[in-house]
Design a protein around this nucleic acid. Sequence first.
DNA 1: AGGTCATTTCGCAATTTCCCGAAACATCGT
DNA 2: ACGATGTTTCGGGAAATTGCGAAATGACCT
Lengths: 129, 129
Amino acid sequence: MTSDPLRPLVDTLKVLAHPVRLRILALLHAGELCVCEVAEVLGLAPSTVSEHLTGLRRTGLVREWKVGRWVHVALSDEAATRPLLEALWPLMAGAEAELSRDRAQARALRCDVCDPADCPPSRTLKEHA
Amino acid sequence: MTSDPLRPLVDTLKVLAHPVRLRILALLHAGELCVCEVAEVLGLAPSTVSEHLTGLRRTGLVREWKVGRWVHVALSDEAATRPLLEALWPLMAGAEAELSRDRAQARALRCDVCDPADCPPSRTLKEHA
DNA sequence: AGGTCATTTCGCAATTTCCCGAAACATCGT
DNA sequence: ACGATGTTTCGGGAAATTGCGAAATGACCT
């Protein structure tokens, strides 16, 4: 009774119901990134992005792991949240302009002069500037 | 800039991200009801239910129409929200106990002595008591 | 050890959500 | 017209959400 069986689903939907977090998911749909890259692309304070990612991780939508002093983020492959995400992509078509701009900016942040294989996301932003 | 292309989707997800509204959708998945029946089943004030339904209607998830002094509610058949709802049902499996209890209570509110065909939702609750 | 960069935690103000009761509306029956 | 019933709108208080900067943490480098 006190434990609401709908709680997990509601929590997941609450996390999805935010434009910044949807943009993050769409970004990660195109490949993994590190936190500072996400912050740069979205133009938000790192602390803000970190908090959004905490929510996404808590509900199993993304996974994070440490690489040096960077934290990499990628879509989780948990089966639970898959169908929801799959249903979501088509519904984001109306924002394709904004989302592809995000993706382009993310790509621009990565090494664009060297082989991607030599330029993992562990490269610092400063090193690119 | 001021117009956020993700807004419609975010609004829909925000409306979905609430246990009461999910219970309402699950209830309507089994058939149309009128507002007072929903309020009775959920044990909430009619004004509260009315406000939840306003949100569900605004995002096109349900449709309402007037029958005498009652307002009937049913799932909308809009194509836009269909895939999202279809992805949602399986994820509500964990709450099947609560949801089927809701459905049973809704059925009990309807005429259980006469033929359902003779007992549309337009029958008042008092008339059943 | 000290310095720098990436990240998280914390405190806080602004905004929004949630639920209700009271009052306003609407519709039916007498 | 009146009262009863279903519904919505409004006012307000409690709680949750959002975003940031400042400070704390962790990891690298010299």
